[in-house]
Simulated scan of single mutants.
Amino acid sequence: MSFLIAIVSLLGTIAIFYTSKMFYKKYQNEWLTPILITPLVIIIILLLTGTSYKSYVAGTGILSNLLGPATVAFAVPIYRNFNLLKKHAFEIFLSIAVGSAVAITSSFTIAVVIGLNNELVHSLVPRSVTTPIAMDISNMIGGSPTLTAVFVMVTGILGSLIAPLVIKVCRFQRPSSRGLLLGMGAHGAGTSKAFEFGELEGTFASLAMIVAALISIVLSTTFFPAFEHLVVNILLP
């Protein structure tokens, strides 16, 4: 029986994703994005059928394992446009470094101010990094990798929904601006959205996501401990 549930979970998840993708392409509504609709539909089905998450993930774990190779695959468009990226290397690195620092400090400060416990605080800090690396960072700084994965998913979904509005309101026309915004603000989900704008946007988003992950690893082991000490022991004794 458990084997049957696992097979149905895997095939059902794939079917739900491609169905939602079809509707998204047809109606072009941001709120119909598969990244949002697929998990909502799956949650509703699991609740209605009384299927446990443990039974569900037993069949769909293979999809999670594909996240790593999918992240590595972003290197392809980067390679194709390497000369363009090299030309803007300083601007890219500086903007992503600032974005990563802001993401870490704002997440930590807000979490502390609203009174979250220590585990939640440290789980929230790496929310602006792609899931596999965010979970590793969370484990390094004393958070819960599972909670971090949830925070990353929520950040990615909300970022991919809000970013197009920001781009429209701020009238960002350059592919680099659009791509870096989406890759830094919404990592994997944002990169997927960036490719809907164009290949260059997707390329810059891919680079932003990868560079942000690398910078965040460094900041989490150097800058963050010092910042945490400053806030907890000096500013908020």
Score class of each variant (00 low, 15 high):
F90Q: 08
F82R: 00
E30S: 14
P77I: 01
I16G: 14
T49K: 05
A70W: 11
L158T: 10
A101G: 15
K193P: 06
V152K: 05
V76P: 05
T130F: 00
E228A: 15
S106Q: 03
Q173L: 13
F3E: 00
V231G: 13
T191V: 12
T155A: 11
R178N: 04
P132N: 03
I141S: 06
V150M: 08
F108C: 14
E201N: 06
A226K: 14
Q173S: 15
T146R: 11
S55R: 12
Y53Q: 05
T131Q: 03
F82W: 05
L32N: 03
K25W: 03
V166G: 13
V218W: 00
S177N: 01
S123E: 02
I167C: 12
L161S: 11
F204Q: 02
V113A: 12
V150S: 11
V76N: 04
G59K: 03
I37V: 12
H122N: 13
S9Q: 11
A111S: 04
R127M: 01
T146V: 15
A134F: 12
M184K: 11
L214D: 06
V76T: 11
I7R: 11
I14R: 04
I44M: 14
V218K: 10
G12K: 04
I110E: 00
L40H: 07
K193I: 03
V121T: 13
V129F: 01
L47P: 14
T33F: 15
I42N: 09
Q28M: 12
K21V: 07
F93H: 03
A208F: 10
T38C: 07
A149G: 12
G99M: 02
P69R: 02
F108A: 12
L236H: 13
M184R: 11
H122L: 06
I114W: 02
Y24S: 11
L40K: 12
A194K: 00
T51C: 13
T146F: 11
I37G: 07
L219D: 02
P77M: 08
P126Q: 03
I210N: 05
N65I: 15
A101T: 08
E196A: 14
S2V: 13
A189R: 05
Y24I: 01
G61T: 00
